[in-house]
Structures are given as C-alpha cells and as structure tokens.
C-alpha cells in the first residue's frame, strides 16, 4: 500500500457521503416544499395546525438536525478507519 492510498480511500468515502447527504438535504430543504402548499393545505391531524402551515418547518428543522448528527457520526467512523489505514501504511 503506497502512502497516497489512505488519502484516496478517504476522499472516495468523503465524496460519496457528501453526495448522499446532498440528496438528503435537497429532499428536506427543497423538494418537499414543492407539493406541500397544495397537497397538505387544509389537512389537519388532531390539534396540529393545517399541515401545509408551519408544521413542515418543524419537521424539516428536526430532520436537518438529525441529518447533521448522522453525518458527523458516519464521518467519525470513516475518520477512525482512515487513521487505522494511515498508521498501518506508515509501518
């Protein structure tokens, strides 16, 4: 294994994670907002306000927070693996 390998390995995983989380972000931040005012207008569940109202904001903020922590946890795993491969390469 050459010295450059761990970096290439890390970059592949980082690029893939970035793409996956970009799609997640695109969905919760943009795509979900397109049908929302039409599909959920006037729809109510229990004592919640109409579902097109500020309910989506609540949901996407929570989803956005979860996405950040999920990314951080995933990258922790990748980081640890990177350290391991890099140290093995140094030996």
């Amino acid at each position: 294994m050459t010295r450059e390998d761990p970096y290439k390995w890390y970059w592949k995983r980082l690029a893939r994670a970035t793409l996956v989380w970009f799609v997640i972000w695109l969905f919760i931040a943009v795509l979900i907002e397109i049908p929302n005012p039409y599909v959920f207008r006037g729809v109510r569940i229990g004592s919640l306000p109409p579902l097109h109202w500020y309910v989506p904001a609540f949901i996407v903020i929570v989803a956005g927070i979860l996405a950040i922590f999920a990314y951080a946890a995933y990258m922790d795993k990748v980081d640890r693996e990177f350290m391991r491969i890099a140290k093995e390469g140094e030996r």
Binding site: W21, I28, A29, E33, P37, Y54, P56, I61, I68, M75
Partner: peptide, 28 residues
Amino acid sequence: IALLGFDALIYIIGWTLGYTLMSFTVAP
C-alpha cells in the same frame, strides 16, 4: 409571519437548513 402568513415560511426554512448543507460542505 404575522404579516406575511404562509409566505414567511421561507425565512424559517431558509435560515435554518443552510446549516445542514454547511455541515458537510464547508464547516469541517
């Protein structure tokens, strides 16, 4: 929100979800 109603939802979404994008494209 009291004045614009639904249309002010962009501020809630626009001023929060940027952090999600920032977390994996810029900050670290």
